[in-house]
Design a protein around this nucleic acid. Sequence first.
DNA 1: CTGAAAGCGCTAACAC
DNA 2: GTGTTAGCGCTTTCAG
Lengths: 348, 348
Amino acid sequence: MAVTLKDVAEAAGVSITAVSKVLHGSGKSVRIGLETQKVIRETAERLQYYPSAVARSLRTGTTRTVGLVFENFGELSAGPMYYVLMLDGVARELFRNHYRLTILPEIEHSDVAPALSDGRMDGVIWCKLPAETDLYPQIRRTRVPVVALNAPAPENHPDDLVYVFCDNDGGARLVVEHLAELGHAQVLFVMERGEEETPDATARLSGAKRACAERGLGFEVATWSREAWEFADWWRAGPTHTALFAWNERVASEILKRCRETGVSVPGDVSVVGFDSTPYCDTTSPRLTAVKQPILEMAGQATRVLLDMIEGTTPDPRLVVFPCSLDVRDSTSSPRSAERVPRPVFSK
Amino acid sequence: MAVTLKDVAEAAGVSITAVSKVLHGSGKSVRIGLETQKVIRETAERLQYYPSAVARSLRTGTTRTVGLVFENFGELSAGPMYYVLMLDGVARELFRNHYRLTILPEIEHSDVAPALSDGRMDGVIWCKLPAETDLYPQIRRTRVPVVALNAPAPENHPDDLVYVFCDNDGGARLVVEHLAELGHAQVLFVMERGEEETPDATARLSGAKRACAERGLGFEVATWSREAWEFADWWRAGPTHTALFAWNERVASEILKRCRETGVSVPGDVSVVGFDSTPYCDTTSPRLTAVKQPILEMAGQATRVLLDMIEGTTPDPRLVVFPCSLDVRDSTSSPRSAERVPRPVFSK
DNA sequence: CTGAAAGCGCTAACAC
DNA sequence: GTGTTAGCGCTTTCAG
C-alpha cells in the first residue's frame, strides 16, 4: 500500500541506502552525487513517498512524542479553566520543540508501567498524580522519564520523579491574610464533594486551617457539591462566617451564582474567594478574587524539564515549587462588622 | 535496554513465538500447554517485559491512535469554551474505544500529506479545516482517513473527505427570528478582526444577512477586536441598532463587559446575542442568549465516523450537518421601541 | 561516492 | 503443542 524507501530505490535504480541518505540524511553523511540526488528526489516526489515514522522509531528508539496522563480528560470543559491553561502551557512548549502530544486514556493503576513504556512516547507528563503509594513501583518501572505536574510531592514520593507544583500552602495563607486585613473573623472553607482526597484540595485546606489558626481566625470546613446547592441551606441557618474560601475557581463561581439566586450580595453580605485565578475570574460577577498559580509557566517548565531529561540531562532540582500570588478582584471586602444587619430574605 | 520477547523466550527456554502467543495471542491461536504458559507468564513478569507498541505497529500497520489537527491548540484557553467541549467530545469517543489521541503541532500546508501519513495514526480529525484549495491535493494524498470537524464543506471540497459541521445558516436565522419577534429593527453583526475568513464566521455572517433581508430588518457589519474595544465609540456615536449579533461567544461576552464598563444596560439599552451557547454563557452577566451547536454530539459523531472508516467502512453520507438551536437567556429583550429614551451618559 | 547487510521487536504463516 | 522463518520500513556500520 504505502510507498517505501525500497520502492523509490527500485524506481530510481539506486540502493535503499542512497535514498535514505539523500531523503533523510543529515549533513555530512550525504555523500551522494548531485545528479543521483536529483533523480532520487524526483522519484520520491513522483511516487509520493512519505517516510514511516513507525519504522524509524523502531530503529532509532525515539518518537518525538510526549504522553500526557490526565485523568478525566474528556471532562475538561466541566472543570476549571485552570486545566485548559495547563494544557496550553504544555502544548506550546512541546510544539515549539517539534514534539507531538499524545493524550492517554485512563490507565489502570496496575498497568501503568506497560502503558507508559510501550515505546511510543519519549517521556510522560502526569497531571495531578494521585498520592497513592501503589502507583510508585509502577512509575519506577516505567522506562521513560516522567514528570508530575500540578501535584504536590507527598512524603514518600519516588526520587526518580520530578514534581512541578505550586505552593498551595502559601497561596492559602495569602487568602487568609487578605481576609484578616479586611476584618473577617470567621472563615468557611468550601471543599468539593469527591475531591476531598485531591492533593491540591487537601494542601489548600490544611494551609488555610493553619493560617487561620495562626491569625486567630475562626475556621470551619464544609463539603459541598460542585454546584454548591448547599449554599442556600447554609445561608438560611444564619452562619457566623463572613467569608467563603472555595477550594477552586469552579466552585467559587458556582457559589457566586447561588448568591445571586438567593439574593445574597457579594461582597456585601459575604466575601467569596477561590483558588486558581484565571481569565475566567474576570468574567464572573462580581469578578472573583482568587489565588493565582503561574500555571502557564509551571506547565512550560515541567515540559522543559521533561525534554531535558529525554535528552539525557539529570534533572536538578527534582522538586520545583512555584509561588502563588493573590489577584484581588471584586468579590471580597470588609464584612458588615458585628452590627446586627438584617440579612436579606431568603427566597426559594 | 528494554526487555523484549526474545529475552523472555530465552529466559523461559521457549521460542519467541510461544511467548508472543501466550502473552498477546487472542483466543484460539493460543495452543500452548498450560504449564508452559505459566512459565512464560512468570518469566515475563519477573523480567518486567513490556511489549513494544512501535514494533507491533510496524508489523500490523495499525496504531489505535487518532491524530487531531487543531491550529493554535496552544491558545485553547484564549478561545471560546466551545472548542474545549469539542475536544471533550472527541476524547470521550476515542477513549471509549481504547484509542489514543495525538495532537499535532501546526503543519505546513505544503507537507500535510507526509505529516498525516507517517504511520503513527490510523486516522485524523481536522478541526476548522480552512477552505483553502491548496490543501485539498495534500489531503487527498493522505493515506489515512480524514474527517473535517466543525468546518462547513466549501464548494469544491474533496469528495473523499467527510465533513461534520453545523447549520450556521439556520442558526443565524434563529437569532434573527428571535430578534424580529422581540421587535428589533436594526441589527449589527459583530465580526472579529482576524477571523473574517474563518468558514464559520463567513457562514454566520451571510446567514444573518440573508435572514435579515428576508425579514426586512436593517443589517450592518462591524469588525471589532476580540476585546470589542470599539464598542465604546460605536455606542457614543448613537447607533440606530438595538441588537448586537456577535459571531461567537467570546466576543459576545467581551461586549457584555464593555457594556458594563460604559454603563450600557443589557438587554435594556441593547440586546446582545452570540454564537455557541456553552455552559459559560450561564456565567456571564447577564446570562448570554446564544445559538447552540450540539458540539459534543458533533464531535462524538465525527469521531465515530472516523473510527468506522478506520475499520474499513465507507462513510455515508459524507456531509453531516447538525441543526442549531437557540438558548434564550437574559441578554435579549424587546428594544425600547422608537420612543426617544435618553441614552446613558458615556463615561470614559 | 555507493551499496550490502544486519538488525530494531513483533506477528503470522507454515512447518514439524 | 511448539518452533522456524520471513518480513514490516528504516538507519547505520562497514566494504568496496
